[in-house]
Design a protein around this nucleic acid. Structure first.
Length: 532
DNA sequence: CTGTAGTTGAGAAT
DNA sequence: ATTCTCAACTACAG
C-alpha cells in the first residue's frame, strides 16, 4: 500500500488570485516536483460568526462571494480547487493539521492588527503540530517593515519622504500564475468515508448576504478575471495613462473618471505589483508623463504610504492612543450622523455622493474628500471614526489602513494640516458638473430643479419648489447646517485644537493650557488616561 | 533658526 | 487659465 501523501496548504485571506502569488506558487512548485508525495490544498477560512458582528454591507459580501467563486474556477484550471473551511482559524487548524497530514502552510502576510494576532496564534498551533509555516509579503509592492527600517525605524509621515525612501528600494519580481498540477485534486481518505465531499464548497450569495434588500446594482463584480479585464481596459489608452493626474479627474461624472481597480487591489484579486509593472512598461514609452503623487503610480504609492504608517500603529483606526493622530474634541450628533450616512443632509452634492456609495459601493476619491470634510472639520464636527465606520460597511474597496489614513487626512488629524482649506458642499461639485446631472441621477427628487439652484435648493421660492415637484421639508430635507456659518466656526475650533496639541507636545505646563476653549473635559480625561 | 512645500479650497482679480 | 488673498497648519531641508 502506498504511503499517504502529505498535504501542503496555502491559506487565502486577502490575495484572492492565482497570478503573482508567491505563497501559492511555493506549494504548487513543491507538489509539482514530487506529485506522489504531496497534495495541494488551497483554503479560505470562513468564520460564520463574523457575519453577525463584522461591519460589512451586502455589496461587500457579494464582492467577496464572487471573488471566491472566481478563485475556485481559476484554481480548477490549474488542476486544483478552492476549499472553503468553515469555522474560526484557531479552531479549524488543529483539526486540519492532523486529519490532512499537513507538512507545510503558506500565506501572505497582513499588517492589520487582528490579522497579526490571528496569524501569530495559527503559527503557534502549527509549531505545536510540527507544521512548517512560510509567509510572503505580496499585498503591497514594498514590505512596510523594510521601508520603516530604511527610514531609521519610523514610518515616513510625509509622502515626499516616503517617496525618497522607496525610490532606493529594489522592486519585487512579479510572478506568473503557477504551473498546472500533474495529478489534480486528491481526495483525502476520511472525507470519502464520511461522504462529505461538498463541505468545502464556495458559499452561495444567500449564505453571506443576510439583508438582500440592501444589495445595489452589481456594477463592479468581484474576482481576479474581472480585475485583469478591468486592468487591461484601464491601460488600453496609453496617453490617458501617461497623462493621468488625479486632481484633474471629476468626482461627479456619471461613469467613473478613474480606474476603479481599488476593490480588486483591496481583496488582492489584482496584484499591486503587477499594476506597477504594467504602468512602468507604458511610461517607458512616454517620456513626458505625470508623476507621483498625482499620477497612477502615485496612487499605488499612496496605498503603500498608508500601509507603512498603519503597520506600526495598532490604534491607527482610532484617535485615542494613536501616535499620528491629533486629539480633537469632536461632538456626538447621532441625528446629523444619520442624515449624512443616508444622504439626507439637505446638501444635494453631499447627498448624491452618499447615495451613490450606498447603492454602488464605490465613489470617486475627491467625492470621498467632499463628504469626509463635510462630516468632520468642515461642517458637522463629528469624529472621523464615525465616518470610517460607515465607509467600512459600504465601500467595496474598504481597506483598514487606507480608510483610517484617509479619514485622518481629510479631518486634518494627521498627514494633512491645512485645515483652513475647506471644501464647499455647493461650489466644489459645480467645477466639474455645472448642470447637476450627477445630482439628478442620485437624488432624483431634485431632478426638475434647474442648474441655477440644484446645488442650493433652499434658494428656490416655495412656489418654484412646488413647480419643480420637490418641496423642502417634505420631499427633500432642509439643510441640516448652514455651511457658510459653521465652516468658519469650525476653522476656529481646529485652530484651538491645534494649539492645545502643540502645547501638550512641547510640554507646556498642564495648568497653563486653556483646555476649555477647545477641548471638553471628558476628552481631556480620556487623553490623560492614555498618556500614562 | 528661517524658508518653503504640501496629491486635489474658495473666491476674487487679472 | 493663472495668480493672489484669505490665515496660517506641520514637516523638513538648509
Amino acid at each position: 500500500m502506498a504511503v499517504e501523501r502529505r498535504t501542503l496548504i496555502h491559506w487565502f485571506r486577502k490575495g484572492l488570485r492565482v497570478h503573482d502569488n508567491p505563497a501559492l506558487i511555493q506549494i504548487f512548485n513543491k507538489a509539482g516536483a514530487s506529485p506522489d508525495k504531496f497534495s495541494v490544498r488551497p483554503i479560505f477560512v470562513l468564520d460564520p460568526g463574523i457575519l453577525d458582528w463584522m461591519k460589512v454591507g451586502a455589496n461587500r459580501w457579494r464582492f467577496l462571494q464572487q471573488s471566491l467563486l472566481d478563485l475556485d474556477k481559476n484554481l480548477k484550471e490549474l488542476n486544483s480547487r478552492l476549499y472553503i473551511v468553515r469555522g474560526k482559524p484557531v479552531d479549524i487548524f488543529p483539526n486540519l493539521f492532523d486529519r490532512w497530514n499537513v507538512e507545510l502552510l503558506t500565506f501572505e502576510t497582513d499588517i492589520e492588527p487582528y490579522a497579526v494576532k490571528r496569524d501569530k496564534a495559527v503559527q503557534d498551533i502549527a509549531a505545536a503540530h510540527g507544521v512548517k509555516v512560510d509567509t510572503h509579503c505580496s499585498h503591497t509592492i514594498y514590505n512596510p517593515e523594510i521601508v520603516i527600517a530604511k527610514n531609521f525605524g519610523r514610518a515616513p509621515i510625509t509622502y515626499q519622504k516616503f517617496l525618497s525612501v522607496v525610490e532606493k528600494l529594489k522592486l519585487p519580481k512579479v510572478l506568473d500564475k503557477p504551473q498546472r498540477l500533474p495529478n489534480g485534486v486528491q481526495p483525502i481518505a476520511d472525507e470519502l468515508e464520511m461522504g462529505q465531499s461538498d463541505v468545502y464548497e464556495c458559499p452561495t450569495l444567500d449564505q453571506l448576504v443576510k439583508r438582500p434588500q440592501e444589495l445595489g446594482i452589481n456594477k463592479f463584480p468581484g474576482g481576479e478575471r474581472e480585475a485583469l479585464r478591468r486592468l487591461d481596459t484601464s491601460l488600453s489608452d496609453e496617453h490617458w495613462v501617461a497623462s493621468f493626474e488625479k486632481p484633474n479627474t471629476a468626482p461627479n461624472s456619471l461613469e467613473p473618471s478613474t480606474t476603479v481597480l481599488s476593490p480588486y487591489l483591496k481583496f488582492g484579486c489584482l496584484s499591486a505589483r503587477l499594476v506597477h509593472q504594467r504602468l512602468h512598461e507604458i511610461l517607458k514609452r512616454h517620456p513626458k508623463h505625470s508623476k507621483p503623487p498625482v499620477s497612477l503610480v502615485g496612487q499605488l504609492l499612496w496605498r503603500e504610504f498608508y500601509y507603512t504608517a498603519a503597520a506600526v500603529e495598532p490604534n491607527f483606526d482610532r484617535m485615542l492612543g494613536n501616535v499620528y493622530c491629533l486629539q480633537i474634541p469632536w461632538q456626538e450628533r447621532p441625528d446629523h450622523l444619520d442624515a449624512w450616512a443616508h444622504g439626507r443632509t439637505g446638501y444635494p452634492f453631499i447627498d448624491a455622493i452618499m447615495r451613490q456609495l450606498r447603492q454602488e459601493g464605490w465613489i470617486h476619491h475627491l467625492a470621498r474628500h467632499a463628504v469626509a470634510c463635510f462630516l468632520t472639520r468642515g461642517d458637522l464636527w463629528i469624529s472621523w471614526e464615525e465616518g470610517q465606520r460607515v465607509f467600512e460597511e459600504l465601500l467595496l474597496d474598504h481597506d483598514w489602513a487606507l480608510n483610517a489614513g484617509n479619514w485622518m487626512w481629510l479631518s486634518a488629524s494627521a498627514f494633512f494640516h491645512q485645515y483652513f482649506r475647506v471644501y464647499s458642499p455647493v461650489a466644489f461639485g459645480k467645477k466639474t458638473d455645472r448642470t447637476g446631472a450627477y445630482i439628478r441621477k442620485y437624488v432624483p427628487e431634485l431632478a426638475k430643479y434647474p442648474a441655477g439652484c440644484i446645488y442650493e435648493p433652499w434658494k428656490a421660492t416655495l412656489a418654484d419648489q412646488r413647480e419643480f415637484g420637490c418641496v423642502l421639508g417634505i420631499d427633500y430635507p432642509h439643510r441640516i447646517v448652514n455651511h457658510d456659518i459653521v465652516h468658519k466656526e469650525n476653522i476656529k475650533r481646529m485652530s484651538a485644537a491645534y494649539k492645545i496639541n502643540r502645547e501638550v507636545r512641547t510640554g507646556k505646563q498642564e495648568d497653563e493650557i486653556d483646555y476649555d476653549s477647545s477641548m471638553s473635559l471628558t476628552t481631556r480625561q480620556r487623553n490623560a488616561s492614555f498618556e500614562t
